[in-house]
Amino acid sequence: MRPTSEFIREVIRACGGASKIAEARGVLPSAVNNWPLRRQIPADCCPSLEKLSLGRFRCEQMRPDVEWSVLRASGAEGFSRVDSGL
């Protein structure tokens, strides 16, 4: 199930707002503000949002369609081996 627009807005607020996320990701704030309209956060943004939200929102919540356990275990970009519990 896709996250609701309100859930995505909560994630954005918890991360310090669209401007802070945009600066951290190297995109325009308008791109971040479009996420609730599309009801989807780009998967490659989820690891940094998890960190910006201090773990309040996990990648698994933001994009349940992605196999995050595999990426965490592999130490993929954005995830350290500590993130995976290994």
Rank of each mutant, 00 (worst) to 15 (best):
S53G: 08
F7H: 10
E10N: 04
D65V: 05
L37C: 14
C46Y: 06
G16I: 04
S53V: 00
G55C: 03
E6G: 04
L28C: 15
D44M: 11
E6C: 03
A22Y: 00
L52K: 03
P47C: 06
V11G: 09
E23Y: 09
G17S: 07
L54M: 12
A24F: 03
V70C: 09
I21H: 02
R63W: 01
I21C: 03
V66R: 12
P36G: 03
S69R: 13
V11N: 10
I12V: 00
L28V: 15
V27S: 06
S84F: 12
L54N: 15
L54D: 15
A24Q: 11
R38D: 10
I8W: 03
C46K: 09
Q61K: 08
A14Y: 03
G78T: 03
R58M: 08
R25E: 10
R25A: 12
R39I: 09
R72N: 08
L71H: 11
P47Q: 12
C45T: 10
L54G: 15
P3K: 10
R9P: 01
G85L: 12
P29E: 02
L49T: 09
W35M: 05
R2D: 08
S80N: 10
W68S: 03
S53M: 02
G17K: 06
L52S: 01
S69I: 12
G55A: 01
S19R: 14
R81E: 13
I41P: 07
G78P: 08
G75Y: 01
G17H: 00
R25Y: 14
E60L: 03
R13M: 11
V32S: 11
P3C: 04
A43S: 11
R9F: 05
L54F: 15
R39L: 13
R38G: 08
K20G: 02
P42I: 09
V11L: 11
C45V: 09
S53D: 07
L28Y: 15
S19G: 08
E77W: 13
C46F: 06
N34M: 11
E67D: 15
S84Q: 00
R9E: 13
S84C: 09
E77C: 13
P3V: 02
D83L: 07
R81D: 11
T4H: 10
P64T: 05
A22P: 06
I8Q: 08
M1R: 12
C45A: 09
L71W: 00
E10C: 07
G85F: 08
P3L: 09
I41W: 03
R38T: 09
N33Q: 11
F79E: 04
P29W: 06
K51F: 06
D44Y: 10
D65E: 04
E10T: 05
L37P: 04
E77I: 12
L28F: 15
R38N: 13
L52P: 06
E6T: 08
E23Q: 14
P42C: 11
Q40L: 10
I41D: 03
I21Q: 01
I8D: 00
E23R: 14
Q61T: 02
E23V: 02
E67K: 15
F7T: 07
E6I: 01
D65Y: 00
G16A: 07
C46L: 02
P36E: 00
P47Y: 01
L71K: 09
M1L: 14
G75F: 08
M1H: 15
E67Y: 14
Q61A: 05
N33M: 08
W35K: 13
A76C: 01
G75P: 04
L28S: 15
N34S: 13
A18D: 04
P36F: 01
E10A: 04
R13S: 13
